[in-house]
Design a protein around this nucleic acid. Structure first.
Lengths: 245, 245
DNA sequence: CCAGGAATGTGATCGGGGTCACCATATCGA
DNA sequence: TCGATATGGTGACCCCGATCACATTCCTGG
């Protein structure tokens, strides 16, 4: 996309490179800013890698700052006192984690667990707010990013709140998930590296129900599973499940 | 709070007055900006009143712009194709409606229905984005507002997604609602001008279940109802419902 | 002030899906 | 390579709450 910009600061080069070359989202948040802004950004950013199982932050914790996910996947979840867990979403490279909390100054509202080796840039609360105050354009982009995060969360809320049955929720989940991934009309194939347990926590159902529903969907020839790859054989059929009672 | 600022533009005076004197939230979004910004803001803002039953916007509609609620209450909801409705929240004076959609340029994600005579200021999509581009400080405040909206929505999501039973959801709903209102420890009294049907749509339950649960709570001496006013007689008791299975 | 629709209250019914218990695989680290 | 532990699969049970079908009360506008 943009022209590559290189700088000499300790982390600057790779950060900007990461940003500009980010393959997942074009015209990303902090690309194409004024050079002065990019310079400043590189100064306040620090990079780190995290192993599988690491925790970036925990819900309820005061917000230390924002993480920009460069590579890997991170699970965003919240849980109740009795151990129940609701998974909000799986963050992908290019996503900003802990943004809402950092901006508003409230505690992190979710827990961020690294589910595969990941790399992320970090900007502290104070630095980030100062940066936004100085660079209004960046603030606007942050607002846009927040809007999209909001709308994504809202979509999941609809899935959970407006569905009659677990069957409908799972169908909706699979269709949403396939939409993120390359859609080859007719039969859509994609990877789903989540356990039944995790899927259950995303749609608000029990693990057993998810297992049974997958079996049911296979029996109905709606989909097919090989290891972690899912093939939606009958997208139309799944969509019908959303309509009928 | 702030010093009163008066201007001569058609709507300017009352808008700024409304803003500065807004009794509901201090240091509100667009107060205490630079005079030039306030001036510009007043030029792009138009005010209108709406009767009960009016609709500000409908979900799915392209975002025309943002509404700043000055007086009254507006119901924000979303519904599925089969007529089910999920109420997100009841907006209060000082809230911005349609903000996420306007910022991101996506369609409105909810429907906004006026549930009591209301007054609102409107800023069109284009004007609003231009304004934010010119006034970085305002963009930052918008980002903060979005963060809070997000966290509120998130809280409702938790209520719906993490509760075992309808009883728990209603208890959580009542406690949340009472938190917004003056809390007089021991017995908390507040107004609840929602029908059982609407409460049901907020917590994802059926109308009958809400009715039955209210009866149950009354029988257990947890609360008391006179018309539209609710008295939580035993907050502690309600909180216990959240813990136990 | 009255009529008619909205809101509330309540019983009967019934099915989805949560939970428990258990076994069968798969996966991963030592 | 092998055992431990996570994951997947399946039956039995049964409770919560959705739904339907009314009766009753509230309240609002003409």
């Amino acid at each position: 996309m943009g022209t590559g910009i290189s700088m000499r600061s300790p982390y600057g080069l790779q950060i900007i490179e990461n940003c500009v070359t980010c393959p997942h989202k074009e015209s990303r948040l902090f690309c194409n800013l004024a050079p002065a802004a990019l310079q400043r950004l590189s100064e306040i950013t620090s990079s780190a890698t995290y192993p599988k199982g690491a925790t970036l932050f925990v819900e309820g914790q005061p917000a230390r700052g924002v993480f920009i996910l460069c590579a890997g996947h991170v699970k965003l979840s919240t849980s109740s006192s009795d151990g129940r867990t609701l998974i909000l979403r799986i963050a992908e490279p290019g996503d900003l984690l802990g943004l809402a909390a950092t901006i508003s100054g409230r505690p992190y509202e979710v827990t961020a667990d690294v589910i595969e080796p990941s790399q992320a840039n970090f900007i502290s609360h104070a630095d980030f707010l100062n940066f936004l105050r100085e660079h209004g354009e960046a603030a606007l982009r942050v607002a846009q990013e927040l809007s999209e995060t909001y709308q994504t969360a809202f979509a999941e809320m609809r899935t959970i709140g407006l569905s009659h049955s677990a069957r409908e929720k799972l169908a909706r989940f699979l269709l949403d998930w396939s939409a993120h991934h390359p859609s080859d009309n007719g039969a859509i194939k994609f990877n789903l590296t989540l356990t039944h347990e995790e899927i259950a926590q995303m749609i608000g159902a029990s693990r057993e129900t998810v297992t049974r529903l997958f079996a049911d969907f296979k029996k109905r020839n709606l989909l097919q599973i090989k290891g972690s790859s899912v093939i939606l054989k009958d997208k139309r059929g799944l969509e019908q499940l959303l309509q009928e009672n």
